[in-house]
Design a protein around this nucleic acid. Structure first.
Lengths: 158, 158
DNA sequence: GTGCGAATACTCGGATACCGCGTGTCCGAGTAAGTGAGG
DNA sequence: CCTCACTTACTCGGACACGCGGTATCCGAGTATTCGCAC
């Protein structure tokens, strides 16, 4: 799995905690988490293209949440970074070479292997879609009560 | 996702259909599905290492199922090919650079982001573990009634 | 005809190259803020 | 004091290299078969 997913979620969490109209810049995130700024910027651009963030150009610019954190799911993030293609791609080897099966195969039916893998991936996507940034935020606050103020302080929002 | 997973499942399915003590060789599988024989061999070796297949050396050798197809799950196959490591790896960026959070973080608790991703991946693994080769076999036979005899015929088992 | 032994051909298995994609970096276009002068 | 235009500095955004893991391949070790020969 692409490492940018983890970065993206943490960035979105920070933006959720620093609930403000004034945006946060790539440089600030990179400094906070000790990440390569340029590469992080690339990932954030993907979030903008996916409509999760909106970018503010110019001095004192940066990124803002494009919609409330409660309406951003993990599936949105993963899809934005990894792309919409499923992890398992069926190459239909069942009807290569010896194509005898295909003769009796009921048309319109999917390869059973592909169907099984898609069921599993659907379960994964369902779980991702059921978890929002806000949910993770609450869980983190439960684990570390002072984290909200700590993050706001780390970004200069006293 | 590694392409070998699809190949492995189809090979296991073929072995389940051709229910016989005499093994099937890499060359036969490669011919049936039009796959590169050497690379396919590499994947089958992984299945042997994982204990899903047992190899028979020598002339007329090949591979046999190491245990009944009903006791081989998709999770077994994926783990054998992809390895046991989870797809999402948490690099703990939450406490790099500004480590202020960690001061208040309740010790022994996992990063909330990691926890969320692990929940999703657990759902995926649960679905994979609930589906056996036999289950896929039955579904395929439902889609294509004559497939069992077709496969047996393709491998010379008349 | 039968038993034995060597040659054989076929198999798996690990060691070895190739290549695409994720990883990492850089520089330019664009814009808001800041600054100074002029009215 | 207010307005305005210019300079400035900082931001995002896309275009450009690097390295590793999946992809693909080849050749050697080992064994069951098979053929031939002796009995």
């Amino acid at each position: 799995m692409n490492q940018g997913v983890e970065w993206a979620v943490h960035v979105l969490l920070s933006l959720a905690w620093v609930d403000d109209d004034v945006p946060l810049s790539t440089a600030q995130f990179a400094r906070s988490y000790d990440l390569p700024p340029a590469y992080l910027s690339k990932q954030l651009q993907a979030l903008v293209r996916a409509g999760l963030l909106e970018s503010v150009p110019g001095a004192k610019g940066g990124f803002r949440l494009a919609r409330p954190a409660g309406q951003i799911t993990l599936l949105d993030v993963v899809t934005a970074i990894e792309g919409p293609e499923p992890a398992f791609v069926c190459t239909e080897i069942r009807q290569r070479g010896m194509g005898e099966h295909s003769a009796t195969t009921n048309p319109g039916t999917m390869c059973a292997v592909n169907a099984a893998m898609r069921r599993a991936e659907l379960a994964w996507r369902r779980s991702l879609a059921s978890q929002t940034i806000t949910g993770i935020r609450m869980e983190a606050e439960d684990h570390a009560p002072g984290i909200a103020d700590a993050v706001r302080g780390a970004y200069g929002r006293v």
